[in-house]
């Protein structure tokens, strides 16, 4: 189902992509992140190196405080590293200004959160439309793109419903549609099933897997849940700000 591009070129399509090209999309070199809390400086990430291939579905696992969400925030351009270099699609994002980073996020990253983070006063379609408000698309084009994104997550019938009229799983699907609608380079998911029951979680994870396998979306997912991680193509484990184990999922 072709939809108009939010950021032409390239042309955004939600066509199946059976053989995604596995080249390094995210490149992290010597990245450290330190926070200062009062008089204490806490090092959350320590000289981390990592490559994430284009078309990968990576699960980042590890105990609380291991630095996985911090790493996700750095890759998604929500935060800046204390040291090191982060490249996404060969563009250094660690040196971008706040406004340039905002533009970059709008163009390249789709975010999915544990608690959906939908705007409660907006309908599902208005929530999905939000990223497109930052584009030059006309109202009609935006409407078409929103309809396509909601169709991909199977919520066309719920377009005019507000978040409080939707179940948790449906809200997360709306959040996924919002993450997808501007055709981002990568999807960043922070505990996307953390607030869902097993059955609904499996549905959401299947949807993410489908987006990865059939639409070629690169997905980086932070999770505590080993079962959720099994949906990824690769798993990385972190502890105390460092990568400890990596491997391919089943």
């Amino acid at each position: 189902m072709p939809v108009p591009s939010a950021f032409p070129p390239p042309q955004y399509t939600l066509k199946p992509d059976p053989e995604p090209v596995m080249t390094a999309l995210v490149s992290i070199r010597g990245v450290s992140k330190r926070y200062t809390r009062g008089k204490q400086t806490v090092e959350v990430l320590a000289k981390l190196d990592l490559d994430i291939a284009s078309g990968d579905f990576l699960a980042l696992m590890g105990p609380s405080g291991s630095g996985k969400t911090t790493l996700l925030n750095l890759i998604g351009g929500l935060d800046q590293p204390s040291d090191g270099e982060i490249r996404v699609n060969d563009k250094r994002i660690d040196q971008l200004s706040s406004n340039a980073l905002a533009k970059w996020r709008a163009r390249h990253v789709g975010f999915i959160f544990q608690f959906y983070n939908l705007l409660p006063v907006l309908t599902a379609e208005a929530n999905v439309e939000l990223p497109l408000l930052l584009t030059d698309l006309s109202k009609a084009q935006r409407k078409k793109a929103v309809a396509a994104a909601l169709a991909v997550v199977g919520l066309s019938e719920r377009a005019t419903h507000k978040p409080n009229e939707l179940s948790g799983g449906q809200q997360q699907r709306v959040a996924i549609a919002r993450a997808l609608v501007a055709d981002p380079t990568l999807l960043v998911c922070d505990e996307p099933t953390g607030d869902l029951d097993r059955k609904t979680a499996d549905e959401v994870l299947t949807l993410l897997q489908d987006l990865n396998r059939n639409y070629g979306k690169t997905i980086i997912m932070v999770t505590h849940d080993a079962k959720a991680a099994e949906y990824a193509t690769h798993q990385l484990h972190m502890d105390k700000g460092a990568l400890v184990v990596s491997g391919a999922a089943a």
Binding site: N99, A102, R105, A106, F113, N117, L119, L134
Partner: peptide, 16 residues
């Protein structure tokens, strides 16, 4: 505040 954080996450600039 969380909603504004979400908007910023989606790419809304400080000015917007």
């Amino acid at each position: 505040i969380p909603e504004f954080a979400v908007l910023k996450t989606l790419g809304f600039s400080d000015g917007k």
